[in-house]
Every structure is written in structure tokens, then in C-alpha cells.
Amino acid sequence: MADNFTFIIDGTEIPARQGQTILKAADEAGIYIPRLCNKDGLEPYGACRVCTVLVNGRPQSACTQPAQPGIIVENDTEELTEMRKQLIEMLFVEGNHFCMFCEKSGNCELQALGYRLGIAAPRFPFMFPQRELDATHPEVFVDRNRCILCGRCVRASRDQDGKNVFQFTGRGIKKRISVNATSRLADTELKSADKAVAACPVGSILKKGVGYAVPIGERIYDHKPIGSDIESKAK
């Protein structure tokens, strides 16, 4: 198979290289496919399903599916946008997301996707689950109320920091982010400068002593929708 080839996203022919995922190729071509659990530099995980696209008519997560010569990918369609909206709404009702006092507000990828997709209120009943907060560490806290189980901290801690601080425990609705070996964040080697801390897309893992550092109006997603940086690369 040729190293360089093309395939189609929403009617546009885009270049790709052997071994690239659909998401990566789309990013380079300036086409934004919404995503949550995917982050540059981390191994693709395919957990959140927000990047689901239709590949030759079949749903696949764009972050894990390799690009193939000549495939037809649908991304920006009414049907897929509706599915993505429902996924984001389910994440909102499944946790306790109080944007009004969250330090991550304005820089939060979950919130930003809500804005981009035009969600005014989730259509599903709120669950208001009981979730634990771990504030034992002097520099960092974990608030599981805001966790969306994307696994970015798990991958960053394991693959980039080499510390394995975070892991998942439980299954299904009882699945939680946990702290390896011991139950307290304070007993780990986690440092506030670790990649695992920066990897959190929401306000679940935050540095202490930072607070509302950036004023409203100057935060990442105050004026431009998430994905604008990728779309600005389009020719």
C-alpha cells in the first residue's frame, strides 16, 4: 500500500499517511472532529465516542480508526451532531457539573463542546450522584464530581510521567478514577507540574492555589469555539 494516499471527509478529499488515524489526518487538513478523551501526545483510547464518524456508512471512533485509501467519512452531519450532543448531555447529567463555581470554567473542554454543539440544557434527568473528593495532596486535588472518565490522566501518568498515579476502578455506572496502590493522592509521587494534571479536560484534577486566575472574557473558549485552532489550518 502506498505511504501517502487520500480519502474523503464530508465530500472533501484530504491527504493522509500510512498509520495515521482519521482524526489525525483530519486535524492536519483543518477539519475539526469533536473529541474529548483524545489528546495530542497520548495514545488513542476511544472511550468517549464523541469523535464517532461514519466510515463507509459504519460508526467508528475517528481517534482509533486508521485512515485507509479511498474511504468515505461522514463527520459534520445532522445525525452525528445530534449523537454527539446526546453524549455530552449524558456526561453533564451523570456527574455534578456546577460550572458557575468551577475553576476550570471557560477553559473546560466538556463545557466548550456544550457551547459548540449549542446545548442550552440537557434533555436527560439529572442524576446528582455521590462522588468523593480527594484533597489530601498539598498541590493538587481530585474532584470526582466533575470526572468524565476520559482516562487522559491515566494515560499521561503511565506513559508520560512514568508514575501510574491514576487508574480506573469499578464497572459501568460505578466506574471511578482512583489513585494507585493507596487511596490517598497525598501518598503518591504526583507533582503539580506532572502531565497527568494538565491532561484533565475538565475541572476534576486541578492545581491548588490557582483559583480563578484568568478573568471572564479572556479564557480559552470565551470567544472562540473549541476546534477553532484546527479549523484555522484549513486551506
Binding site: 455534578n96 456546577f98 442550552a120 440544557a121 440537557p122 446528582f128 450522584p129
Partner: peptide, 18 residues
Amino acid sequence: ISVGDCATMGGLPAMRNT
């Protein structure tokens, strides 16, 4: 029309929901 986060998602008063 639901106006504001309390009307749309319970808001701060809903912190007691857990």
C-alpha cells in the same frame, strides 16, 4: 423560559442533592 443555571440544572441549591 428557564432563565439561569438554577432553572436549567438546579444550580447552587442543587448542591444539597447529594
